[in-house]
Computed example of a mutant assay.
Amino acid sequence: MYGKLETRTFLAMLVGVSLAFILLMKPFFGPIFWAVAIALIFHPVRERLAKRIGDRPNVIALLTLLICVVIVVIPVLALVTSLVAEGLSIYEKIQGGELRPGEYIDRVNQSFPAIEAFFAQFGMDFAEVRDRVVSAFVGGSQFLAKQALGFGQNTFQFFLGLALMVYLAFFLLRDGSKLVDLLIQALPLGDARERLLFAKFAEVTRATVKGNLLIAIIQGALGGLIFWLLEIQGALLWGVVMAIVSLIPAVGAALVWVPAALYLAATGEIVSAIILTAFGSVVIGLADNILRPIFVGRDTKLPDYIVLLSTLGGIVMFGINGFVMGPLVAALFMAFWGIFIREFGEVPGTAVHTTSDRATEMQQTEKSGQE
Rank of each mutant, 00 (worst) to 15 (best):
E6K: 07
R8I: 12
T9A: 08
S18H: 06
A20M: 07
A20N: 05
F21W: 14
G30T: 10
I32P: 01
I32G: 01
I38T: 14
H43A: 07
V45Y: 10
E47Q: 11
R48C: 08
V59Y: 14
L66K: 02
V72I: 08
V76S: 13
L83C: 02
I90D: 02
P101D: 05
P113A: 09
P113N: 06
E116L: 05
Q121S: 09
V134I: 12
G140L: 12
A145G: 10
F151L: 12
F156W: 14
F159D: 11
L160T: 15
Y167M: 05
L179K: 12
V180A: 10
L183C: 10
E194K: 09
R195G: 04
F198Y: 10
K200L: 13
V204S: 01
K210A: 14
G211Y: 06
L213W: 11
G220P: 01
G223A: 07
W228S: 12
G239H: 03
V241I: 09
M242Q: 07
A253S: 12
A254E: 01
P259A: 06
Y263W: 08
A265T: 05
A265M: 11
A265N: 09
I274Q: 09
I275V: 11
L276H: 05
V282L: 15
D299G: 00
I306L: 12
I315L: 15
W337T: 13
W337M: 13
I341G: 12
E343W: 03
R358P: 05
